[in-house]
Amino acid sequence: MNRRKNITLYCAAGAFLLALFLSNIFFGSVKIPLRDILAILSGNFEGRESWRHIVLETRLPQAVTALLAGSSLAVSGLMLQTLFKNPLAGPSILGISDGANLGVAVSMIYFATTSYITTIATAFAGAAVVLALILWFSSKLKNNVMLLIVGIMMGYLASSVISILNFKASSDKVHQYVLWGMGDFGNVSIEKLPYFAIIAIAGLIAAVLLIKPLNALLLGESYASNLGVNIKRSRLMILGCTGLLTATATAFCGPISFIGLAVPHIARLVLGSSNHQQLLPVTLITGSCIALLCNMLTLLPGSNGVLPLSAITPIVCAPVIIYVILNRKNIQYFN
């Protein structure tokens, strides 16, 4: 019976994801008739070249990017919440996104590079430094709330360094960085997309392979090590995977807050379980859905342009967190 429920859930989630993905391709700030879009997608389009360009080289890569970035961030958040035994952990709360931001700022402003390989490498380095610091603090601080506050402080520290870098930089570089800082799934062009996709998918596969130790870690590290989990190795692998996913999503799409924090909660509430065998795949799909939804919502002004993504994700995700905190007494996984 449980299995049937799960299959229904996966089918529903898959259908929802597909619908959102197609909506992202069908709707945009330029109106293109549905028939023409279908013709473009099937390769039989004879009309305006600009439309083909919009659909194939703007909307399609943007939708794929949102799909992958959303699941990357959501899965990172889930792994962090399990590892730190803290339902309010997430890549942006713990300062990991800010670490990646700092890495990007250094490469954009200081090295003045436009190579995305350098950008990813510096973003990953920044995320890894913050992760290592958080890990070090987590061995000192048994109290999870204190650890979150330390993470928030690290985020502020990284932001301060970014401000100082901006102060010293020339205005055009700052402008470029500020644009990136608004977050945009459209930053990834069709040429860059394969690189982004390969790294993100590799990270997601690694996350799926960590399901078993993640489940054991729900009992705490002592129990997990007694069950046969190699704690040091698992922790490194989980953090490495989180760093890679967060850094990649941040380097390509800019800082996207809240998806990593909120989506695992949505997934747990929908699924009614903390068992990662179901929770991780559901978080992955939900992350894609929420990112695609947020991307759609940036189009709200109509033909007058698009809203910055960083303005949309909190509107969608913050209420989820507030709901979860208000109802924590009645939510199983909080107790």
Binding site: K85, N215, L218, L219, S222, R268, S274, N275, Y333
Partner: peptide, 20 residues
């Protein structure tokens, strides 16, 4: 240790004993 197993069923928690 209290752990964070509140969202697992009793059966799922006990099944973690089969880890190895």
């Amino acid at each position: 240790d209290k752990g964070n197993a509140g969202g697992l069923t009793v059966y799922e928690m006990v099944s973690l004993g089969r880890y190895k």
